[in-house]
Amino acid sequence: MPLLDRDGFKPDSFTRVPEAGETGETAILVPFAPDAPPAPPAGNRALGIEIANTVRIDALRPHLDRFALIAIGFPAFSDGRGFSLAKQLRNAGFRGTLRAVGPLIADQFAYALACGFDEVELPEALATRQPAEIWLAAARAIRATYQRSHQAGGVSILDRRRAARAAAAEPGAAP
């Protein structure tokens, strides 16, 4: 399915396989079940997991450093659980790639990036109806937000105000 990040559509370097033991691909994406976490793949292949948005952070926490990518399913764009799960993963220190998978709409792109996602994997039809320029424009629609964002270049109004206060308090600052 089409994959897009803040620069537009791009090829997917991960290949979905049923389990990590199989050989061949350099980067693999496997399903994750909390009671049977995947074994480390052979060699130094990158391991990604795909999870439902009902998986609890506590089930993932012990394994986080083994995953190069975590793909979180969005069963519907109106189901916002994935945003909170992404935020929890970032708060837990996950540094790998976070991917949102499902029928998100362009208007949610900024939210996804702000919550710590890096990329979105879309159904074909949706990507056709909402081309890359719509997504990239939507990510920039609100130039500064009241929350601190994980998005590179995200602008926090709180930080701007703090900076303005600091500049005003600086001795000799321009009035």
Binding site: F77, S78, D79, G80, F83, S84, K87, Q108, A110, Y111, A112, A114, C115, I142, T145, Y146, Q147, S149, I157
Partner: peptide, 13 residues
Amino acid sequence: RQWSSLHPEFDYL
């Protein structure tokens, strides 16, 4: 009001 406006995590509750 400000904190909750277009909150990226809590707009699809």
